[in-house]
Design a protein around this nucleic acid. Structure first.
Lengths: 148, 148
DNA sequence: GTAATCCTTCCAATCATGGGAAGGTCAAGC
DNA sequence: GCTTGACCTTCCCATGATTGGAAGGATTAC
């Protein structure tokens, strides 16, 4: 199987497959004489594992750990669980952060008439010197909220 | 006021102030003879506005729009509200996405004994061929969940 | 006068991903 | 057997917001 077929079968793009190989997340594949990468069903299975882990928001580093635990028959399930729970913690912190932003912003928007007049509580709040009301303060930036 | 003092007064780092200037989010400042940037209280006010908008998760692009609306006395509040509500929409989509990941993962972790034995439903699920249960599927990657 | 602390610009790294160029390979059809 | 198109290869660049650091000049305090 060529990389394109492996990509289609696993849901991981060719680009990402090469990238994952380059950073050592997945092993280097066999090549044909002319240099084409060749993938087995087993490789596709691994790629699908990686993709699912990405779908759950795990970082590449965590995925590397998960993959190696997956392939270790002597693993302790607590090691897997620890990674999962740590990630749940991160997700929940992030969720709380975004919820605070959203609720602050919704509150402000609720008080903005949204007509053609210039008066706007949203801008007033942003321009104010007082601390942002109640919660809404990101402790950590997040690099791009995504494309959505 | 030098950039360091403006940074301390506004909560925006010197690095970011220079960056914001370089991309045109804030105007170029006056310089001293020797090239030091000089900031007025008014500049600090603008920087604080920017910082608050960042704290609410607005992108730099949106902040540019907000700043220009802020400085436009003829603005229509509906233009501000539109930006705010669009951002709320993004936040809420993101929140839902993360919640789906978290709940899927918590569910899996709940079923993992977390002891020294190798059996682990989390890995089993990741390795499975079936679609991820119910929800948990990120439609858009997010570039780093942050440092938290 | 010197040391410490600022400032300047420029370059690099982060993280996961996509885009594209330049060039080689393969399969199908003629 | 040759052309065409679809694949593959590697390499570099861009994203977004932010931080880090190096090299060198300015200012300030003692």
């Amino acid at each position: 199987m060529n990389i394109g077929q492996a990509a289609a079968a696993s849901g991981v793009s060719s680009k990402m497959i090469r990238y994952y190989e380059s950073i050592g997340l997945i092993p280097k594949t066999v090549r044909t004489e002319s240099g084409y990468r060749v993938y087995s069903d087993h490789d596709v299975h691994t790629l699908r594992f990686v993709r699912r882990a990405r779908d759950l928001g795990f970082s590449v580093e965590q995925i590397a750990d998960l993959v190696s635990l997956w392939q270790d028959r002597e693993r302790a399930s607590k090691d897997v669980k620890a990674i999962a729970l740590e990630h749940v913690g991160l997700l929940e912190r992030k969720i709380r952060e975004l919820q605070e932003m959203a609720s602050t912003l919704k509150h402000l928007a609720d008080h903005c008439c949204g007509d053609s007049r210039p008066h706007c509580p949203i801008l007033e709040e942003l321009a104010s010197h007082d601390p942002l009301p109640v919660h809404a303060k990101a402790d950590a930036r997040f690099g791009a909220l995504g494309k959505a």
